[in-house]
Simulated assay, not measured.
Amino acid sequence: MSRAVVFAYHNVGVRCLKVLLAQGVDVALVVTHEDNPNENIWFGSVAQVCRDYDIPFITPENPNVPEVEQRIAGLKPDFLFSFYYRNMLKATLLESAKYGAFNMHGSLLPKYRGRVPVNWAIIKGETETGATLHVMNVKPDNGPLVDQQAIPILPDDTAEEVFEKVTVAAEICLNRALPGLLNGTAQFVQQDLSLGAYFGGRKAEDGRIDWNQSITQVHNLVRAVTHPYPGAFCDTAQGRLILWRTRILQATGQAPRAALMAEHDKLIATTAQGGFLQILEAELNGQPLTTQMVSGFPGRTLLLSE
């Protein structure tokens, strides 16, 4: 029986850990994170899976410290796996596994290396993403590929919907690749890093809407940062506007300015580039935005930029 130490968090961590258990891997230790009380915890708990299956787990702030390194080395793992664990693992940990360290990344590498790949793929208007199992080294997301599983991104998919599909893709990818890893027959393919790029993390402020962009770009931002994320927003004369759900009615067309209007029973936004975006769910100063509210503004219009 192969022995593994697993670094895991989030839904991908939950599902991939269960794949290891289902295929008979001896999970000697799980390293996970304490949930941050200031974060919206909308995802599954790796720690709870460990409790359910009587797996030892620890939650160090930094795993790259001698006490953790020594504990893992003492377990003599055959494999080390990282499934959506948020900290970088340094060489001492990566080299502690007899047959190597492997990471599950939420994109089709080499595209969207780095942080929050699902959100970035939506922002950039991709129609496909997926999950990639790859060899880990000290540089993020650039080791040889073991396996990949693609999923579609539909035009109105939100980040949570895409992440649900990526979670399933990760489970399929690992379940398919694991037997080859365990029996030593897996084939690795070196990445061509020129075919992708590295992306950094995102903050709530990165959800600010630029109304000089196209309707499609605004729509992509909205669906990339909607619930459970902080939302796409802008500041207006009437207060802060947050868009939660939108639909493109017309990607191009004449529009003299960026504005939000009440037309019959619909809320319609335009950008400086033209086109028409239906606002399906939004809030203004913390209150649900309605056509009646916008109808009360001068000209039945809320200006979105100067």
Score class of each variant (00 low, 15 high):
Tyr85Arg: 11
Arg86Pro: 09
Asn87Gln: 12
Asn87Pro: 06
Asn87Tyr: 13
Met88Trp: 10
Leu89Asp: 05
Leu89Pro: 02
Lys90Val: 00
Lys90Met: 09
Lys90Asp: 09
Lys90Tyr: 02
Ala91Gly: 08
Ala91Tyr: 11
Leu93Ala: 04
Leu94Asp: 08
Leu94Gly: 06
Leu94Phe: 04
Leu94Gln: 10
Leu94Ile: 01
Glu95Ala: 15
Glu95Arg: 15
Ser96Lys: 05
Ser96Glu: 08
Ser96Gln: 11
Ser96Leu: 02
Ser96Ile: 02
Ala97Pro: 00
Ala97Asp: 05
Ala97His: 01
Lys98Ile: 00
Lys98Arg: 15
Lys98Thr: 01
Lys98Tyr: 02
Tyr99Met: 00
Tyr99Leu: 01
Tyr99His: 03
Gly100Met: 05
Ala101Gly: 07
Phe102Met: 00
Phe102Gln: 02
Phe102Val: 01
Asn103Thr: 04
Asn103His: 07
Asn103Arg: 06
Gly106Leu: 05
Gly106Tyr: 03
Gly106Asn: 13
Gly106His: 07
Ser107Asp: 13
Ser107Ala: 14
Leu108Glu: 01
Leu108Gln: 05
Leu108Ser: 10
Leu108Pro: 03
Leu109Arg: 12
Leu109Pro: 04
Pro110Lys: 15
Pro110Val: 09
Pro110Asn: 15
Lys111Arg: 15
Lys111Gly: 15
Tyr112Ile: 10
Tyr112Asn: 10
Tyr112Ala: 09
Arg113Gly: 14
Gly114Ala: 10
Arg115Gln: 12
Arg115Asp: 10
Arg115Asn: 11
Val116Gly: 12
Val116Phe: 10
Val116Met: 13
Pro117Cys: 13
Pro117Ser: 11
Val118Gln: 07
Val118Cys: 06
Val118Pro: 02
Trp120Gln: 07
Trp120Ala: 06
Trp120His: 14
Trp120Ile: 04
Ala121Cys: 12
Ala121Ser: 15
Ala121Arg: 11
Ala121Asp: 11
Ile122Cys: 03
Ile122His: 04
Ile123Leu: 14
Lys124Leu: 04
Gly125Gln: 08
Gly125Ser: 09
Glu126Val: 08
Glu126Pro: 11
Glu126Ser: 11
Thr129Tyr: 03
Gly130Met: 06
Ala131Tyr: 03
Ala131Trp: 02
